[in-house]
Design a protein around this nucleic acid. Sequence first.
DNA 1: GTCTATAGCAAGATAGAC
DNA 2: GTCTATCTTGCTATAGAC
Lengths: 198, 198
Amino acid sequence: MTATATSTNTSATGRDNRRPQLLDSAARNFCDQGYDAASMRDIAAAAGMKAGSMYYYFPSKEDLLVAVHEEGIRRITDAVNDALAAVEGPWERLRAAIGAHLDVLLGGGDYARVVIKALPPDDSEAHDRLIALRNDYEAIFVRLVNELPLPDGTSRRHLRLLLLGAMNWSQTWYRPAGDDPQAIAEAFVQLIRQGEPQ
Amino acid sequence: MTATATSTNTSATGRDNRRPQLLDSAARNFCDQGYDAASMRDIAAAAGMKAGSMYYYFPSKEDLLVAVHEEGIRRITDAVNDALAAVEGPWERLRAAIGAHLDVLLGGGDYARVVIKALPPDDSEAHDRLIALRNDYEAIFVRLVNELPLPDGTSRRHLRLLLLGAMNWSQTWYRPAGDDPQAIAEAFVQLIRQGEPQ
DNA sequence: GTCTATAGCAAGATAGAC
DNA sequence: GTCTATCTTGCTATAGAC
């Protein structure tokens, strides 16, 4: 008996739970329709289940959204950290991070998109928690921007907000037929980098 | 009989309709709660009316949202055009436009906020129409960016998307206690302008 | 674990009195 | 024009059988 399994197995395969499929389905539905418009029935149906059964895995719709957000943030964070692992130079590192962020956000499936598109109601308990999660992630960019060689008096805070805003808003206008996420990242960095001190 | 009035007056004051109050209330509720979560009952109540009565003015909730968007876009457009009227110089004009956009978006009431925060469902008929409205507005920035003196090879399209994204996303992080919209506009322009050709 | 069935409620919209 | 009353529909969530 391991400490992680709290109950006896009910399936010979060990895959005794369908949380992952439910999360996938929830991510897809929240992304397509928004949090309010997505229904538990539809989410369950897309995972091959009836609505009532979901409550075995998630005690409420809001908990489901929180779980999708956590997974989404985790995926973006991992992608950005992976992209940074082998890159040297402050501008190159910023470019790599923006590229990874845009890759996941624009071409990486539904989880990351939900993080940007579907927030819970402003007054809910989950709201503050998800904002905090996002802030943790954005701390990566605080550091990347702080390491840039910039003229004195440049507002690094506004630079970070400018870039994160531009990145996150790109969901609004991005079309796969246009230039790809890496090209967008390159263009954004060039715009900031113009005339930098050589 | 004028062509614009289609029925006999029913009120001695001439203010025979309460559309404006309903729009105000709708803007406030869509802004605070989002399109789906805002209810026709609440919107009507805030305008001193019962839900059923609203349908005299607006045939559906979606029509109400469209009307709020139209008014929001109109207000942003007017503010930006007013700000541009007296300003010369391409960078100064860009700065003025960003300042006006941010003023309305961050401190100008609910209409403009709804334009950014509350879109109708992706598959609705109203959606395309509101996107088109926004594109018309953003054409102002196409022109402002085209007039900037920039190094050859700079992607003016990406510069515009960068700036509009940063502006619109600012609703997410802006707090009245921090620096004001004009200061943010100044900071954004400085970040792009660094090392411009003198 | 998944089901059926349903409680309990709130929503958008309509009908018709006044 | 605004009301009351209500239709119809959909939702989250729960209860209990299997």
